[in-house]
Each structure stands twice: as C-alpha cells, then as structure tokens.
C-alpha cells in the first residue's frame, strides 16, 4: 500500500506532515516548503471547495488552500 497523502484526507482530519514526495518539480517543492509544509508540522483539514478541489488546511496558525494535484505530493501520517 502506498503512503497516505493530503489527497486522502477528509475535512476534520488531523495529520502530521512526513515529507514532500520525491520527484516533485523544484518550483512546487520550494513553494510548498516556503508556505510551511515542512516535516513534523501538524495540520487540520478545514474543508474542500464546493467541487471537492482545492482543499483548505490550517497549519502554523494560518489557512492555506491548495489543489488536490498538489495535495498528492504531501505525504502525511494521520493523527
């Protein structure tokens, strides 16, 4: 079974970031890192947009929206 990613979570789920998947484009990786998607950071899935994409998460005291395509790159462990 492959590792769980942010893509697999539903609203209300809490998780801890494990890593950004290897092989992601450097621009995307850097952008995610810059927004605080770093190992060990805890996040809460707030909600999905009406059509299920993007997803809103809160982490480090703020809210962040990202597309499900990008959410696939974030490996997590559920809390």
């Amino acid at each position: 079974m492959s590792t769980k990613t942010l893509f697999d979570l539903v609203s209300g789920d809490r998780a801890r970031i494990v890593r950004i998947r290897g092989g992601s484009a450097p621009g995307l990786r850097q952008r995610l890192l810059d927004m605080g998607i770093t190992r060990g950071t805890e996040l809460l899935v707030e909600r999905h947009a009406p059509l299920g994409d993007p997803v809103e998460i809160s982490l480090k005291g703020y809210s962040l929206a990202l597309r499900m395509n990008e959410a696939r790159h974030i490996e997590i462990e559920e809390l």
């Binding site: 927004m35 809103e56 962040l64 929206a65 990202l66 597309r67 990008e70």
Partner: peptide, 11 residues
C-alpha cells in the same frame, strides 16, 4: 511551461 503551483493563503 510549468504552471505556477496554486498554493494560496486564505487570509
């Protein structure tokens, strides 16, 4: 070219 990743703060 690579689409800018849509990663947006909801202030």
């Amino acid at each position: 070219g690579e689409q800018t990743p849509f990663v947006m703060e909801l202030p």
